[in-house]
Design a protein around this nucleic acid. Structure first.
Lengths: 247, 247
DNA sequence: AAGTGGTCTAGACCACTAT
DNA sequence: TAGTGGTCTAGACCACTTT
């Protein structure tokens, strides 16, 4: 234990300790499946209180590097598929940077709910809905197609707001809006149909992602359902597990 | 503030407080974008110390419901695509329950690295690698195809271990193994080729997921690269955002 | 200057696990 | 029974934001 905590450093003590423990694990001092020292002994070793040590170990736990077992100890985890988490960072800018994103509305018109839409929006089949079809462009290049159905209920102000802002932009942007209480998301593989292929300049029948959503308002009523279609280059689902440098 | 913390309950105080705050947010007392009371005032209100209140708010933060801003306050977040995280729970059992999973080896033979494999495994093109092609069955039903390339370096014991256990089972299972230091994962959309279609009983050209991996050992040398191909029903990427009941 | 979250202490008691 | 992590207290000081 050559390394020490420098309390004068800008980096807080718990972060320094987390980095030290991380290096020790990477260096093989504590092998996968092995036990790291107890919180109290680490605290004595580095002159820190137990709560601070816990916070450091909490960082490693959240990174999936170690696992706490009550009454037993803290163990180094092996790399496991199970711990992986994929996010939508690659398309964040499309929803969050309106300056670089343009929306081309291909269709916005009243229509009737088909069986699938009726089920999703908890409506009777044939009930009135608003159909939307749009093309989202990033830096003037086509990025994603959007197809959506919105509950046609003008007693609810949010429907109007929805139509005004264009799409679900505010909802998904995370600002302003605040009409959505909850949302279910599904990612599916699909293939481009002829229209999508033309709009996105992709080969028909080629592989694509479909990001499907179902949004509820604060009365727990589903008010919007739809999906985005994106090429594999646009929606990138990558993640890293285990001990990568500096992360 | 009608609800109180019951310290005799089995549920810890921080969890009770987190649930209370969650209900208050869901009930619209603190709307999206709004500020919740400061940690010290909540502490006084419920007779808890600041650290305990912080732990409760930490739970909500991790659930993506609120956001802490230093020197400013804690704010209720709107539902946003950005916060979503997708996991591989749907195929966890294939890797973690050897009893119900069978592996049929279609090919395991020495070969030469093509350009892509050479790049991934940091080898010269044409270097010796081991090629593996397998079919993974769950409950005797075909679930996923696997195609992999392993570094052919018998000075390293892990290669032999790799071949013995069959596949990356131990690695991905998270037990025993411990030869992997880090791993990169990518999910891509693809279409079934004729062989995959036949093996998995799926339509050729139909949409599928491709889960690609690259595994490194403790010397930071990439020793395995490959991918799994799965039907959309097998690999389910779903997630929920915002205020769902009891979660 | 006042209020907020961020960090930290030096203890305490409890629940759980292993021996 | 001893050791571990899980929870909790009642403060403290700091960095940051707002007024």
């Amino acid at each position: 234990m050559s390394e020490r905590i420098d309390k004068d450093r800008f980096e807080p003590a718990y972060a320094q300790l987390a980095a030290i423990l991380r290096r020790q694990i990477a260096g093989g001092i504590y092998p996968p499946g092995g036990k790291i020292p107890s919180e109290s002994s680490i605290g004595k070793e580095y002159g820190l209180s137990v709560m601070t040590v816990r916070q450091a170990i909490g960082v490693l736990t959240q990174q999936g590097l170690v696992e706490r077992v009550q009454g037993c100890g803290t163990f180094v985890k092996s790399v496991s598929l199970t711990g992986s988490r994929f996010g939508l960072e690659s398309i964040e800018d499309i929803f969050q940077d309106p300056g670089r994103t343009r929306v081309k509305v291909l269709r916005m018109s009243p229509g009737r709910a088909d069986a699938k839409t009726a089920e999703k929006l908890e409506l009777a089949e044939g009930a009135r809905v608003i159909l939307i079809r749009r093309l989202l462009l990033r830096e003037n290049l086509p990025a994603m197609c959007h197809e959506g159905r919105i509950r046609c209920d003008f007693t609810r102000p949010l429907v109007e707001a929805e139509l005004e802002v264009g799409p679900l932009s505010d909802l998904f942007r995370g600002n302003g809006g605040g009409v959505a209480k909850k949302c279910a998301l599904t990612i599916l593989p699909t293939v481009f149909d002829s229209e999508q292929a033309r709009l996105l300049n992709q080969p028909e029948g080629g592989p694509a992602f479909r990001l499907e959503y179902l949004v509820y308002d604060f009365d727990d009523i589903p008010f919007g359902w739809g999906w985005f279609t994106a090429a594999p280059e646009t929606l990138v689902l990558k993640t890293k597990l285990g001990l990568w440098d500096e992360s």
